[in-house]
Design a protein around this nucleic acid. Structure first.
Length: 413
RNA sequence: GCGAGUGUAGCCAAGUGGUUAAGGCCCCGGGUUGUGGUCUCGGUAUUCGUGGGUUCGAUUCCCAUCACUCGCCCCA
């Protein structure tokens, strides 16, 4: 196998049995979005790099070290690492901000991030997401979260938990980051290497460090006292309270996670993740939040927005494996000269609504029936020389002329 | 970028410092079953991820390398 061609690291071939699960998810999502008034938008996999620098944030890991970025004819391109920035760009570029509010959009497609693959993470992965523009009030957050919950529960996913947090404004966050740093100044040298790094780069992330000695520091008085009192502005708090109240009224269970922050710069106000215990280290199925300044950042008019994205690979890995569905009918054709008759029979059956596979082996009829029986197929059409075309039902051993079979009502499968 | 584990056919796998590398599934071909999931015969690895070393001899020992998996970071 040494020099055979191989798919690039972190990419996946999706074979028919798994593709079936993808279709199930896509179909469910498609009809649910339609019912909720969300229209599909398809944007390029390729964008000018500047979009992500401005949209997602130059200092974020996603943009900083994970983008597939290259130059062609002096233009700087990147494969999209996430979906929101492109949708917002399209929203502005196509003048959707001039259509009635709210503007409700959904998308799906591959995203690309140059990372070390592990369970639940690949370099080309697929997201399904929604974005809703134009409503500043908490109704927008509520609807968007409710839709995520509706989709995941409709798909029958087990052991879901909705975690939600209020991250306020950029100024709120900066102030709180400094409070955290101040509270930890004395302990800084006692922290693990990662947390020392987080201390400067991203203090929020220190709080869910897995290192026990770090945790004892964080669970101590000063930090807990800091977390206990709200640190976001009054408007954001009120907004958050309204959203969570509505979720409770809608029967959607949620829990506050004070350490939940998001790695993309554009979020403000309520942010949330839906996690599951069945996924390994990468346990977030769906994540999102509000981004009130992103449209403006990308050159559009001031327009609030809320959205989320879910990882399809992660979601699909939670679904039970689906057994391949055999066709209703198998057409056994004795030899090549009967091919067209066999195909015509297949067409008639398909027009009637049956799913039909045609055996092209031209082996002995017995072998062909054998093949059908092994596959769990119910009806076999026998196309043989100098005989009427008949349908043999394997469960009952009955044989019926094809013409009669076609007149029968289509049987349950 | 860092850490750990694994690497024998499409899949699951046994194996040993020494003539032709078990077995099962799948797949392919033949026979049998009156036109059926049975049974039966046969076929599918010049080779044990790749390269080098030790050795009279290596799939088995050593080194390197590559690939995959899991974890850290970060995220969906």
């Amino acid at each position: 196998m040494g020099n055979n061609l191989q798919r690039p690291k972190g990419t996946q071939d999706i074979l028919p049995d798994v593709a079936q699960q993808w279709q199930q998810v896509e179909n469910t999502a498609n009809s649910l979005f339609n019912q909720w008034g969300y229209g599909e938008i398809r944007t390029p996999n390729l964008e000018y790099t500047e979009l992500f620098l401005r949209g997602v944030g130059e200092t974020t890991d996603v943009v900083n070290k994970e983008m597939y970025r290259f130059e062609k004819s002096k233009r700087d391109y990147s494969l999209r690492p996430e979906g929101t920035a492109g949708v917002v760009r399209a929203f502005i570029e196509n003048g959707l901000h001039r259509t009635p509010k709210p503007v409700r959009l959904w998308y799906t497609g591959p995203m690309f991030r140059y990372e070390r693959p592990q369970a639940g993470r690949q370099r080309q992965f697929h997201q399904l997401g929604i974005e809703q523009f134009g409503i500043a009030g908490p109704s927008a957050d509520t609807e968007v979260i409710a839709l995520a919950w509706a989709l995941l529960t409709t798909l029958g996913l087990p052991d879901l938990a909705l975690e939600i947090n209020d991250i306020g404004s950029a100024a709120d966050r900066e102030a709180f980051r400094n409070q955290l740093r101040n509270a930890l100044t004395d302990h800084k040298t006692a922290l693990c290497d990662t947390c020392q790094h987080r201390y400067t780069e991203n203090p929020f992330r220190m709080l869910d460090c897995k290192n026990p000695s770090c945790q004892t520091i964080y669970s101590g008085q000063p930090i807990q006292a800091l977390l206990a009192k709200p640190w976001t502005n009054a408007d954001s708090q009120a907004h958050f309270a309204t959203v969570t109240k509505a979720l409770t009224e809608l029967g959607i269970p949620w829990q506050r996670n004070h350490t939940l922050v998001r790695g993309l710069d554009y979020y403000n106000g309520p942010v949330f993740e839906i996690t599951t215990t069945k996924l390994g280290a990468q346990n977030t199925v769906c994540g999102g939040g509000r981004y009130d300044s992103l449209v403006e950042t990308l050159g559009g008019p001031e327009t609030p927005g809320v959205g989320w994205a879910l990882g399809l690979e992660r979601l699909i890995s939670l679904l039970p494996a689906s057994a391949p569905v055999p066709p209703d009918v198998w057409v056994a054709i004795a030899n090549t000269s009967l091919l067209t008759q066999g195909m015509q029979a297949a067409t008639q059956l398909r027009n009637k609504g049956y799913t039909v596979d045609t055996d092209l082996s031209h082996k002995k009829i017995g072998k062909q029936i054998d093949a059908a029986a092994k596959r769990g197929i119910k009806h076999v059409v026998l196309v043989e020389p100098e005989r009427e075309i008949t349908v043999k039902t394997l469960t009952t051993s009955q044989q019926t002329p094809l013409t009669d079979f076609l007149n029968q009502p289509i049987a349950g499968r």
